[in-house]
């Protein structure tokens, strides 16, 4: 029953007609899997006025880009996108389908896999393929306390959503060759039952903590009244302020700045963990940082188990002095 399923397909997520980074990350990993399994890598590009973007996907590793360009795909709506992707998968019989574990991907993928009656592994951080075509999908569970490797032995396609920021994209190569195929999907509009009333964009410029070279991260041990000390340090280091789930829940910083299992995965050059005890959910999001500096009053705090430099002490007292020290060094 598994015969006739071949190749790797990647869902190329777009927003406002622009391909998102996660698509290129998936192509990086997809290329590796396609090569190991001696198969081809296809990107599925679904949206409205997105055809012009197709060749970018080839430059990042796709052998073929399948485009569905339709007015009904202007905004992400579950049923419209499921019909488009289902149509392609049902015709092509992929061995593997990869989708980003974004709020779009995690809405689309389970609906699609249930329609295909196949398995889906959520939010993977590691994918390994065998030449036979079998895929081993590793993901954190129990809030990151446990890693589990999942297989789909009897059903195809093997599907997974992949955590953004984990897989590496290839270098863009404009000279790469590939095909662009446009597909017309026979949509059943009678199933489109969810309507957009309004789209509210968050006005303030989006902070992207995942792009920061240095992160100054705030934990519950800092408190709202002392947040300005961290902001001063961040300014001095041209860094960005981030934080743990606890301070997001307390409303001290906004959700876009949250590091961890339910927030962002980051890998800056330097990560300051200030007043962060180091719940495993938090560590899951920052452990791949190049250099981790932790300050905490509790010498038994978990964070010291992964810090490259750990200081047992009071953030409130140390941080202002640190800003002065950095100024001195810079002045030299």
């Amino acid at each position: 029953m598994l015969e006739g399923y071949k190749d790797v397909y990647v869902f190329a997520e777009t927003r406002d007609g622009k391909i998102q980074d996660i698509a290129f990350e998936l192509l990086g990993k997809g290329r590796e899997i396609a090569d190991i399994t001696s198969s081809k890598l296809h990107a599925i590009l679904v949206g409205y006025n997105v055809s012009k973007e197709a060749k970018k996907l080839i430059g990042y590793g796709a052998d073929e880009v399948i485009v569905v360009d339709d007015k009904c795909l202007e905004n992400y709506l579950t049923e419209q996108y499921v019909q488009a992707t289902y149509h392609i998968i049902n015709e092509r019989h992929p061995n593997i389908v990869l989708i980003g574990a974004t709020s779009i991907g995690r809405d689309l993928a389970p609906r699609l896999s249930a329609r295909l009656k196949t398995g889906l592994t959520a939010d993977c951080t590691k994918l390994e393929a065998e030449a036979s075509g079998a895929l081993f999908m590793t993901r954190p569970a129990f809030g990151g306390n446990l890693m589990a490797t999942i297989v789909s032995p009897n059903t195809r396609p093997q599907m997974s959503t992949v955590r953004p920021g984990v897989m590496q994209k290839l270098h863009y190569d404009e000279s790469r060759k590939g095909e662009v195929t446009t597909v017309k999907v026979p949509f059943d509009a009678s199933k489109f039952k969810v309507e957009v009333v309004e789209i509210k964009r968050e006005n303030k410029k989006q902070v992207k903590i995942e792009d920061a070279k240095i992160l100054v991260s705030c934990g519950r041990g800092v408190g709202k009244a002392n947040l300005h000390l961290l902001e001063d340090l961040a300014t001095e280091l041209h860094a960005t302020v981030s934080g743990s789930r606890a301070v997001v829940d307390d409303g001290i910083i906004e959700q876009a700045r949250q590091v961890g299992q339910t927030g962002k995965t980051v890998r800056p050059n330097v990560y300051f963990a200030l007043g962060i005890s180091g719940a495993i959910q938090h560590i899951a999001g920052m452990e791949n940082s190049e250099f981790i500096i932790a300050i905490n009053k509790d010498k038994f705090a978990n964070i010291f188990q992964i810090a490259d430099l750990g200081i047992v002490g009071d953030v409130k007292k140390i941080v202002p002095l640190l800003v002065e020290e950095i100024k001195k060094i810079k002045a030299q």
């Binding site: 398995g119 954190p140 446990l146 890693m147 789909s152 495993i280």
Partner: peptide
């Protein structure tokens, strides 16, 4: 269940 846990391990 189409998916199965092959192995699990502490981090």
């Amino acid at each position: 269940s189409p998916t199965q846990v092959k192995e699990s391990f502490g981090k």
